[in-house]
Design a protein around this nucleic acid. Sequence first.
DNA 1: TGAAGGTCTGAACGGTGATTCACTGCTTCC
DNA 2: GGAAGCAGTGAATCACCGTTCAGACCTTCA
Lengths: 205, 205
Amino acid sequence: MAYRKTPAELERLSSAREHLIQQATDVVAEVGWAQASVNAVAAAAGIAAGSVYQHFPSKAALAVEVFRRASGREVEVLGEVLRSPGDPVERLTRGVEVFARRSFERRGLAYALLAAPAEPAVGAERLEYRRQYRALFAEVVREGVAAGVLPAQNPEITAAALTGAVGEVLADPLGAADGDFADPLISELTAMSLRCLGAARGSTG
Amino acid sequence: MAYRKTPAELERLSSAREHLIQQATDVVAEVGWAQASVNAVAAAAGIAAGSVYQHFPSKAALAVEVFRRASGREVEVLGEVLRSPGDPVERLTRGVEVFARRSFERRGLAYALLAAPAEPAVGAERLEYRRQYRALFAEVVREGVAAGVLPAQNPEITAAALTGAVGEVLADPLGAADGDFADPLISELTAMSLRCLGAARGSTG
DNA sequence: TGAAGGTCTGAACGGTGATTCACTGCTTCC
DNA sequence: GGAAGCAGTGAATCACCGTTCAGACCTTCA
């Protein structure tokens, strides 16, 4: 019979899907979730609106996939930094710094992940994303407390606070046009994070 | 001629408007912005959907008014606490505590103000609201630094971090069903805030 | 080559919910 | 009392997408 998909065809389909996800991500980073209509996304990917439904059952499913890909990368990177060997306080500082620096490098995307208005399905995904960040931070805080380099505290709360604090401090500048103040802002941010953790003073830079 | 509005009539109109705002606030607190349709709000206020447009030019205008009223009250209360006489660190601690406690007392509303998905007009208002919070906190941090009871730091950043940290820590529990853990959570939160400020350790409770 | 069965297209459809408007009825004031 | 004119009504209208689908076009394979 004349109908099994050839490997080349499967490959073509799969890469069309990837291309769609990639373009959708760019659109979201540029105009936000609210403005990223099926038509806009399809146009960016160079396909018809209807063709989106070849790859995803609904717009929400595509949006969730876009969010997961992007947030997954961030969680992975942060996880690597936080779990690298060395002093917990040092690792936490670098974690905050990496988080902030990457946000500045892809502002639109960072804003979409952190704060931009979004449909409920994406909102739910965002909660999960923040939960993961919190868990990563909490783990290292716990370690620091156990090692005696950090004072007694509730690691989950400190971790949540760090996530929220970094997000809030970044939210404004992420919306602004230029990021020339990124460096001083980041060093203030890490200093604040260290205080937040209750780390001994001294090595702020 | 027979058409100028009598004072009683003006009063009736104005109180109808107030009633509408009040009911709309309750609806938003209960079901969130997204579910607060013109019909739902009008029904709650006991009027027809069309009558909403006697008082506001659009749904967005009503939503903005609802947000402003509620956020204005919060800013006012926090301002009073933060500007009361006394030690800056003490005032900041009480500010965080009051913020958190009031949020627990009216969870639905607090969530609507802090985090619930909303139309762009409300989103813009929310930015302004956070900016006000930040300004209030920053003022006292600046004072504390000047008085030497807080270490050198960028007050704007610390203030933003405090706002974000408190919001993030509260967001989850505000969504949850019961608030029995409110007290321990609040004391952890104030302890974290003190560290964040770099206040000398010791008086955590 | 051509039949079978895919993929792609994009105009049309449908649901949702804000907004309008012809109408009813009330209040004002001569 | 009654004319003038505004407030209130709520069904109809409008606008905006997400989603569907009939047909055009491709790819596969005997």
